[in-house]
């Protein structure tokens, strides 16, 4: 049964949108940290997206995506009332959440939306949540309003200084960790270089650091090994062992290389699609 899109909100025109999907079964079971696999059309590819929010009462889940290539471009071409052909989930291990004190949740780019669900989980259980979010400029910053509604503090940085601190999220993070010794965990979701930088920043402080890895996936249920990542020298399957891992143990360089494995084909796929669309 195709999944209806109940609402679409454009966050960055043409680049990033937030979709609310009618998926009661998934909404009932979705925990922070979980993701779904979607397929937009009969000939489409399976792609993973994080569940950015879930409402079990309304039977809805929220996804937020950045247009990268053909599949996300196809998703962006859909509107309220359209349907998504295949939706599977909730997948992956839920975030480990326990009441311990102060947690810092760092989000970069589209990762802010994914981080949102995790931060919410920590807030619900009674942890003090400090949000740290960053983007290149003010107009690219997501989910500020959503996060503000429950976090205890929200720190913001932009690369160009158009809003909040001018610079990187890691600078805000370092500053905070120096002042606040009660932080029991740092969670980071965002582009690979950002997560690697966060892990680098927290290491001297010895604070537990959890990152959510976005390796390439096919089935999402442990049957293919496309998603394998090296964590502490061991091979793990991000879809069943993760996607969250100890940031101090992850081989980010390997992850970055593996994410580029299909770049040529991805470019071709997107170009062909753009041509065929403009031809019509």
């Amino acid at each position: 049964m195709p999944t209806p899109i109940l609402s679409k909100e454009s966050l960055i025109p043409g680049k990033t949108s937030k979709l609310v999907l009618e998926a009661p079964q998934i909404a009932k079971k979705a925990q922070p940290g979980h993701f779904v696999i979607l397929r937009m059309s009969e000939k489409g590819e399976r792609i993973p997206l994080t569940i950015a929010d879930a409402d079990p009462e309304k039977g809805t889940i929220t996804i937020v995506y950045l247009v990268m290539g053909k599949s996300t471009a196809l998703l962006e071409s859909l509107n309220t009332g359209d349907t998504i052909l295949d939706l599977c989930g909730p997948l992956g291990r839920a975030t480990h959440i326990e009441k311990r004190g102060t947690v810092i949740c760092v989000g970069g780019g589209t990762g802010i939306a994914a981080m949102h669900h995790i931060a919410k989980g920590h807030s619900r259980i009674g942890n003090k949540v400090v949000g740290v979010i960053g983007a290149r400029s003010k107009d690219l910053l997501l989910f500020e309003k959503e996060l503000k509604s429950f976090v205890d503090e929200l720190l913001i940085s932009t690369d160009d200084g158009s809003y909040g601190h001018k610079g990187l999220v890691t600078e805000l993070l370092k500053d905070r960790l120096e002042k606040d010794k009660d932080v029991f965990e740092v969670v980071a979701v965002g582009p690979v270089p950002m997560m690697a930088a966060v892990a680098e920043t927290t290491k001297p402080f010895g604070v537990r650091t959890t990152v959510s890895l976005n390796s390439i996936m096919v089935d999402g249920i442990g049957m293919c090994g496309a998603c394998r990542v090296s964590v502490g020298g061991e091979t793990k399957f991000a879809c069943v062992d993760g996607p969250e891992f100890d940031g101090h143990q992850v081989d980010f360089a390997e992850l970055r290389r593996r994410l580029g494995a299909f770049r040529e084909q991805e470019t071709l796929s997107l170009e062909q699609w753009r041509c065929s669309c403009h031809g019509k």
Binding site: R46, V218, M223
Partner: peptide, 20 residues
């Protein structure tokens, strides 16, 4: 993975099908 991409994903008909 290789077989799933080709069989389930029809990668033999890429880029007509999206899975490479």
């Amino acid at each position: 993975e290789y077989l799933t991409r080709v069989n389930l994903g029809r990668a033999y008909d890429f880029p007509n099908y999206d899975t490479p």
